[in-house]
Design a protein around this nucleic acid. Structure first.
Lengths: 238, 238
DNA sequence: ACAAAAAGTAGACGAGTGTCCACATTCATG
DNA sequence: CATGAATGTGGACACTCGTCTACTTTTTGT
């Protein structure tokens, strides 16, 4: 009677999707976690109380807090990723075709591109601060399942970003693996920029510039590395 | 025993310093937090039990968990920073004088330098995994005091690193502010590399290379930026 | 050596917790 | 309409928690 029904594929969400209770619990958990503590340190009664439900209602939707956390990541992450990609494609279409030449990525067009991408991320962050803060907190948090889920999400973002960037260029800046590596590092670094951005509203312009400069530096650096050693494997280091 | 006649103006911690109980509590807290949960989510009784003490013993040393956490950061952080700087200076002395030319930072000598620095950090991480994991966890954790303390520590590391790098070069690679900015970003990115390094022992060589390449890319990128726009303020061309 | 301070112990209290059981409500669908 | 699953409520259980007071042991300065 434990998980026979609940565990089965996706019949859960037939009516459970918009059924208020589930969403209320997730919202309450994010709210409490963002202002007070980490997800795992929340109390079951604490959350249900904040959601205006009886303690037992929790069990109707989630097995434990890892379960709730994963659901939250799935929901927010999916929405976020879709929104980001959509906005990015919209930006790309609005300028019709590959605007940025590979060699000229540091010129005005390239800088503008970077500026828009950074703005995209920072805008999302300011629009969903609680979810974002909790997510980043769980990135290095105590639950392995949570860590894995958040990391996978960030990696997906990085993959998207790498793809879109390569598409915008008229010639590939570097090999695909390196591009994804760079995108990953940019995404990770952006978590710090984003947290600063949320915590220090008075320094937002400065942080924005810093983020843009960081990305630009990464690109310029990669092009420099490519120029001086195009063949990585053959670089006999010893 | 202790040769402090008027060692310091503060006599508060004369006897409390090395008293086993305090250390036992810190160790127990780090141990529990690294394997189970975040610092703030630990229970007072849980920690004292793990330390083999009565619950009330906690109050003899710390007011609350923030207090314990700050003490832990002070201790581990101070030790770490001293150790890092010492080892770095020892490395610098062993090669007598400025070995790396600014233009040639990407040559073998420069790469070797980066390799040693990365090794330095990763070695420390593998030697103090629990303290490091907890520290990084609190970097984005729930307690503002903790966050501030860990961030200040990382910033200090970055400052040290920036100084030492500039000292090793025969000519400054960039202005001091940019160098510190880069060092900060490198240190922050290293937190991710370090966590991966701990969690995936079988991929350590790969992660090590990735970290080295990241730093190299940052340097090359900064030199590229400097070369194409020495004056940052006047870069607005629109 | 001795007295005071620091460190640690024992027990108890009320509050809050996770979890279970039995019962009430909603609601789509045969 | 009836039925059964999904969803939510209330009470009760054993347990852990933080904190308090009172007492004992260890360490330390003089």
């Amino acid at each position: 009677m434990k998980d026979n029904i609940d565990d089965s594929p996706e019949r859960v969400s037939v009516m459970g999707r918009g059924s208020g209770g589930r969403q209320k619990l997730i919202d309450a958990a994010l709210e409490l976690a963002s202002t007070t503590r980490s997800l795992a340190s929340l109390g079951l009664r604490e959350v249900t109380r904040c959601a205006g439900l009886a303690p037992n209602a929790f069990y109707r939707h989630f097995r434990d807090f890892d379960d709730l956390g994963l659901a939250a990541v799935d929901m927010m992450g999916g929405e976020l990723r879709r929104g980001l990609r959509e906005r990015r494609l919209r930006l790309a279409r609005s300028r019709q075709g590959p605007v940025v030449s590979t060699k000229g990525i540091v010129n005005d067009a390239g800088r503008q591109n970077i500026r828009e991408t950074v703005g995209l991320v920072l805008d999302f962050v300011t629009e969903h601060p609680t979810a974002y803060v909790v997510g980043i907190r769980e990135l290095n948090g105590s639950s392995p399942k949570m860590r894995a889920a958040v990391r996978k999400l960030l990696d997906d973002f990085a993959r998207d970003m790498a793809e879109d960037i390569q598409q915008m260029l008229d010639a590939p800046m570097t090999d695909e693996a390196s591009m994804q590596e760079i995108a990953r590092q940019v995404i990770y670094q952006m978590t710090f920029f984003s947290m600063d951005y949320l915590e220090q509203p008075q320094r937002r312009d400065e942080i924005r510039e810093r983020a843009e400069r960081f990305i630009l530096r990464m690109f310029v650096g990669e092009m420099g590395l490519q120029a001086m050693a195009p063949k990585k494997k053959a670089a006999a280091r010893k």
